[in-house]
Design a protein around this nucleic acid. Structure first.
Length: 157
DNA sequence: GCCAACGTTGGC
DNA sequence: GCCAACGTTGGC
């Protein structure tokens, strides 16, 4: 059974629009070991991905994407010109691993973090847990269904 | 821009 | 291996 993940991106850096335009993208630049481990060890092609916009006016989930490749080394770690260059990583023993992500569907509206925090179905989720700064995190199937359901109706405030 | 929360680094 | 200093994330 396919799993459900959530990835964060700053829309100024790479928005869901950009993902739709590109058709797919390598989820490069993740430099957190826990997030890397999820991509390297647990993500599989076909898993669902909640696409979340962070550091913006109304942070929240904007679309659903899918894992579109097996894990492979993040090429930016070897690129001296990249901000993600890691001098301690070598092609023989790459430190950072990523997957490709492809868009599935944009949500009818943004489901904001504020709404998610107010919804009992997200109690105990990593996303709403205070202090979680992971940019790649596991979610539940129920969270995916809840987000899609919430996106169908007007925000309850 | 502030700052809480957390991860990483490096001296010892 | 401890832990202080520093850097980053990300909501507000």
């Amino acid at each position: 059974m396919a799993r459900v993940w959530l990835v964060k991106s700053e829309p100024d850096a790479y928005a869901y629009d950009d993902l739709e335009r590109d058709g797919r993208t390598a989820w490069e630049g993740v430099r957190n070991y826990q997030a890397r481990n999820f991509m390297r060890d647990e993500m599989r092609e076909g898993d669902a991905v909640l696409y979340y916009h962070s550091s913006t006016d109304a942070p929240g989930v904007v679309g659903v994407a899918t894992v579109a490749s097996a894990p492979y080394p993040d090429p930016t770690q070897f690129d001296e010109a990249s901000p993600y260059y890691d001098p301690k990583s070598t092609p023989d023993a790459p430190r950072w691993v990523l997957v490709d992500i492809a868009p599935l569907r944009r949500l009818p509206r943004v489901v904001t973090l504020q709404e998610l925090k107010a919804d009992a179905r997200f109690e105990g989720s990593l996303l709403t847990h205070r202090g979680t700064r992971l940019s790649v995190m596991p979610m539940d199937e129920a969270h995916l269904r809840a987000v899609e359901e919430m996106a169908q109706r007007a925000p309850a405030d």
